[in-house]
Nucleic acid binder design. Structure first.
Lengths: 343, 343
DNA sequence: GCATACGTTGGGAGCGTTCACAGTTCGGAG
DNA sequence: CTCCGAACTGTGAACGCTCCCAACGTATGC
């Protein structure tokens, strides 16, 4: 709710033309103008032309608030990034996702609004904003365990789709996820097949499904993993570097490490190189994501490709279905092993 | 204007409570509920309490469309990034700006909506969307020369503030800019004072004010610059690398290069190091921005600090003033030389 | 005691749309 | 020539809110 003390009306109202103005200029009724605006069905040629001319002449633009008030729709959805803002700029995955969603939504003439909910203060404001009718639905990205955002949205009855398996909410909300666990299995199995004996892991945050599931996939294969072979990071490059250092200190004899994000893998490699270990000669490094850095870094990364395009497509599809009244659903998309130089 | 053929109303309307519902539960009139919602002035203690209880009980959330329809305000502003989307994620300056603006606006209880207008298709859709009343004003970042966005906004009468000097629109629109020209002068003067004789430049895009002004500042000092001493990039790291290569081929005897963004400077340094030239031993490199990489790269960057915090503050201040009816204005903020290792 | 002022309250008007419905026109079949 | 339906058009009633005005006490000053 807005600060009511803010100056309210000093602004000189440049009166915007309304539908009635357009109707008057065109010499028709409001109803005809409305019909033209909404597709032009059942409007005669001359009337249609007159209205279009009048719109251009008056510079009329539909008042979205008035329209939404009656239609109960706003033709826009929110892309809620529930992460500290910096991550948005560091992690290329968000970029991929965002691009995909924007594109698919544009085909439906729906605008996407990006909101970054870094602090819990932000999350509260955005929860309010989102449920005030500004958007028809929401795409929620990177929801950490225990964030109250999902409950908030659910409570308000706003349709939404989560990216990644929403820990603890799997049965109640729609989500689209890559098959993280299987991806991890594929990778570790591949490392094994290349003769690596002692494979460590740098896992992601364990309050996200990606973190949990990739670790689980690793354990599926490396059934005898000891705590000394397991480290964790927050997906950032710096955290990968730090985790690699800790991991190597705990287990100096590792011959391969499965790093749960490409960015962390880059960090890990740069630590190893500084420490005088060659990759993949002394130790093999595998990433996860197949993001852009995977090809530009040296050595290029053997990694697991996440189908980001399909993820965003499915998220939008699910959200639109949801808005149209369908029940919630989950989609799991396959991941793919990409072999390059680092392992 | 939305696709009118889209299915319109299959969604089961979970009826949201209205003010009348709240009023009925609280045993007061709609007017009193409204007063409570808007600050609670001139409302008796018991009434206020009853209304607040009723709001909680019914789960009432204000309908923003109805409110905006009568107030003509939406309490949100757009942050329009008029760049290909990738840049958003690569250039840390946008991050700084975005963070600053969000923060200042939050103090005024105004939500910031990020819209990325990469393609001209996008720009059109966003122009329409923005003028349909969704936002009270816009913060426009990185406007390239010749983009029709400013004209569009101006034509619609929407208040907006541009970041950076809007080439060709200086007299008609509000903007906040750092003193790029003076910053460039400071840097090149400093390089001169350190004994560098032949100073080259890697400029930014010349359809932006930053690109033009920094080059102008360089020329103010290096009055005898030849074309062979001048190269250009698009502010990205990759373009800095490529530009450095071209520059060195054209002028192998340069002893310093003023690179117009930190990111490009990082690229330039990495090229030089690969080419076996030491920085700053063989050749000094100076950046521009004082972004985060300036301190983390090796050698750390001598650069020009842009006052991003103050820029975002001023942008918001100007925009709010604009929305309140004030005339347009321009703010130029000083830049500062930061000396580190690279020069 | 009466007029005045002030804090509080209820309700009507209106914001700019969409939508349902009723009315009009017109062409072709009976 | 009449009648019917299809194509087109105009109008009133919402949508849910804010704002204004009138009406009410109740306290204050003469």
């Amino acid at each position: 709710m807005a600060d009511p003390n803010r100056s309210r009306s000093t602004r000189p109202q440049r009166q915007r033309p309304t539908m009635d103005d357009v109707a008057a200029v065109a010499g028709v009724s409001r109803g005809t103008v409305s019909r033209v605006l909404n597709g032009g069905h059942n409007v005669s040629g001359p009337a249609l032309e007159a209205v279009e001319r009048a719109i251009r002449k008056t510079g009329y633009v539909v008042n979205q608030h008035a329209r939404s008030l009656v239609t109960q729709r706003s033709d826009s959805v929110a892309f809620i990034l529930s992460e500290p803002q910096d991550r948005l700029f560091e992690d290329p995955n968000f970029n991929n996702l965002l691009r995909g969603c924007t594109q698919v939504l544009a085909e439906h003439d729906i605008t996407l609004l990006l909101t970054v909910a870094g602090t819990s203060e932000d999350r509260k404001r955005i929860g309010r904003w989102v449920t005030a009718g500004h958007v028809d639905g929401a795409l929620v990205v990177s929801n950490h365990l225990g964030s109250p955002l999902l409950d908030e949205l659910k409570g308000r009855g706003l349709p939404f789709v989560v990216c990644g398996r929403p820990l603890g909410h799997e049965r109640e909300v729609s989500y689209v996820a890559a098959d993280d666990r299987d991806g991890a299995r594929q990778m570790v199995t591949y490392l094994r097949s290349r003769g690596h004996q002692k494979i460590g892991i740098i896992a992601g945050p364990l309050d996200t499904s990606g973190g949990v599931d990739r670790l689980a996939g690793y354990r599926d294969v490396v059934t005898d993993a000891t705590p000394a072979m397991i480290e964790g990071g927050d997906y950032s490059q710096a955290s990968g570097e730090a985790a690699m250092e800790r991991l190597l200190r705990a287990s100096p004899d590792l011959d391969a490490v499965f790093v749960c994000s490409d960015l962390m893998a880059v960090g890990a490699i740069s630590y190893l190189q500084r420490a005088g270990r060659s990759v993949p000669g002394d130790i093999a490094i595998a990433g996860f994501d197949d993001s852009k850095v995977a090809t530009t870094t040296s050595p290029s990364l053997t990694t697991i490709r996440q189908p980001f395009n399909r993820v965003s497509q499915e998220m939008v599809r699910l959200l639109l279905a949801h808005i149209a009244g369908e029940e919630h659903a989950a989609v799991i998309l396959p991941t793919e092993l990409i072999i390059r130089e680092s392992a």
